[in-house]
Design a protein around this nucleic acid. Sequence first.
DNA 1: ATATCTTATGAATCCCATG
DNA 2: GCATGGGATTCATAAGATA
Lengths: 386, 386
Amino acid sequence: MSVLRQRAAVSSSEVSFHSPAAFSAPDWLDSVIVGDCVAALERLPKASVDLIFADPPYNLQLGGDLTRPDQSKVDAVNDDWDRFDSFEAYDAFTRAWLLACRRVLKPTGTIWVIGSYHNIFRVGSIMQDLGFWVLNDIIWRKANPMPNFKGKRFTNAHETLIWASRDREAKGITFNYEAMKAFNDDLQMRSDWLLPICTGGERLKTAGGDKVHPTQKPEALLWRVLMSSSKPGDVVLDPFLGTGTSAAVAKRLGRHYVGVERDGTYADFARERIASVERAPDDGLAVVTPRRAEPRVPFGSLIEAGLIQPGDRLCDARRRHVATVRADGSIAAGAVAGSIHKVGASVQGLEACNGWAYWHVEKQGALVLIDELRGRIRSELAAAGA
Amino acid sequence: MSVLRQRAAVSSSEVSFHSPAAFSAPDWLDSVIVGDCVAALERLPKASVDLIFADPPYNLQLGGDLTRPDQSKVDAVNDDWDRFDSFEAYDAFTRAWLLACRRVLKPTGTIWVIGSYHNIFRVGSIMQDLGFWVLNDIIWRKANPMPNFKGKRFTNAHETLIWASRDREAKGITFNYEAMKAFNDDLQMRSDWLLPICTGGERLKTAGGDKVHPTQKPEALLWRVLMSSSKPGDVVLDPFLGTGTSAAVAKRLGRHYVGVERDGTYADFARERIASVERAPDDGLAVVTPRRAEPRVPFGSLIEAGLIQPGDRLCDARRRHVATVRADGSIAAGAVAGSIHKVGASVQGLEACNGWAYWHVEKQGALVLIDELRGRIRSELAAAGA
DNA sequence: ATATCTTATGAATCCCATG
DNA sequence: GCATGGGATTCATAAGATA
């Protein structure tokens, strides 16, 4: 359960589309609008929004089913809203909603868009073409991503956010540099953020126990977005609200929200969720501490760093067993090859072995434990603030 | 025996452009070509390259000078080669060199392109438009990035690499999954890589002590790129060679290289650097072999070898299901009979099952996985075959 | 009650040799 | 070309079940 989540009985107003008239401020502010975002945004006043967070469909283009090694089926995102006929169709869709966003965004406002490699390049290009000016791209490093079950690619362990101003010449942009630095143990906040995916109590479930939305984002991610680039009282727009993560965090942080969601069921869940959120007290906003990455140093890094060369020999403390280092970070002893742990276990006839505490390398006549070499890399990385 | 192709008796000589004739293999292989990459690549044979690494100009669009808090001036990238009049000009340039790369890339080959938020969205979109199929995007997390001196943005602490195949339907792509996993202490390699930037002794300096190239990449980055997606003997092309990081690492790892560089000074530094590199010994270049590459041993061979007798009982690890071994190498459980895989799937009610990892046989009171028995046959085969 | 084991699952562009 | 089938493949986290 998120530290930030609290319960309260606050109602949020609903808005429906019976009239084509433009909304007056009280109508659309702090509301969830059901409908297509381009149509909905046309009814908002021009230059009325301080911050936009958009989580559009990714256009995943998945093939057949995917099963885990235990043969269980992966619950893929194959909803209608994520299907596009071509890149051209996706581009047209993207251009339309970005243009609508651009109209309602204040000249001092900024926009965040999240995506994956399936769509983020197209989104970024179109943003640049429309005149948005990229301020940063941010990497959400997932602490617990889904693995690559078939072993055919690198684990897709991140998503990308683009943060941009309306124009290249934009002035007066909100960036709470000091707050983010304080949040980050007095180090500048970097462009890579390590955060867990949305699971557990934070994940909205139906009465049947199924997830309500296939791509619910973690509140911690929105917390950083809103804390860094908006002020209390600002208006935060989400054109693809889903189950309302951005609006819930906006309300908690004392920002106004406007959410547009095409799916009425998602919107209902979002309204209920937002209603249960209470604005945090002014002095209570700094409760979340950033999750720091402990620098895990794989054995291969020792080779990359030149501390060990391919072809070098490793041995145990008594020189009873010897192994050859290979360029890919594996080692080989006789017919056995694999990680320092696997080969260490094998030569000793054991089930398991901590290779770091077993293998040594000869340096100027003396044996040096490879864990000692790892320590050197660790201290360099720690000094760099990683 | 080394899988390495014997290196032809060709010096890594210079190639010049006095004739429009196509190069013959010995001319361009393991060479640095001075010239525009589009023109140079047109002279290479079609489908002749296994891997491309491209570090194109980023189109940084910098404004005025940047100074640190102590008023020292930051040595920015403002070379002519990084200046483009517009996004359109940059796109045209990008399309041209990507098309030229596509022609020389083998159908089984893959391409890596590195960039930052200034250019990577345009590069990625154009790659998709040209038919390249994105396999992963990789984040190079810089352990020691330059801080944001003005405190106006997040520290730009990463760069993005796109890894793509030539076509969506590409087969036979090289991805040394097991090697990367061994490298990473037996965990799948993720899409975010933490590596220091290129500094210290690795950074090429002029006699005057200035850095030779403003964007020299660390060898560790190229190490991962080449180790993961190429084999010894492969041909690695770099259309923007700069000071030759990719070629130097390729040579060290027993890959052939071709580098194209427009600037003669950079090319000279690259040649000198490549010449000083030594190829790693053969036994250091071997990688962990995937199980698919091991000789196929049918289940019946275990019966032929006497490791299992017809009539023996197989069971799973918890002894929940039992099957009887038959003389023809099939097994039977109740009314179901067939291969170890089919019957394993059937008794569990699953679509598929790897029978080798499911069935055990009782040996002196203990359960032994039949995959372990297969391993014994494989080592005997290896001993006999070698 | 506590510790341990088992199961479930997450924005996924996820096999390949043989006939 | 396509169909077939052997058999290869996972990490972090949370929640529930068992000891």
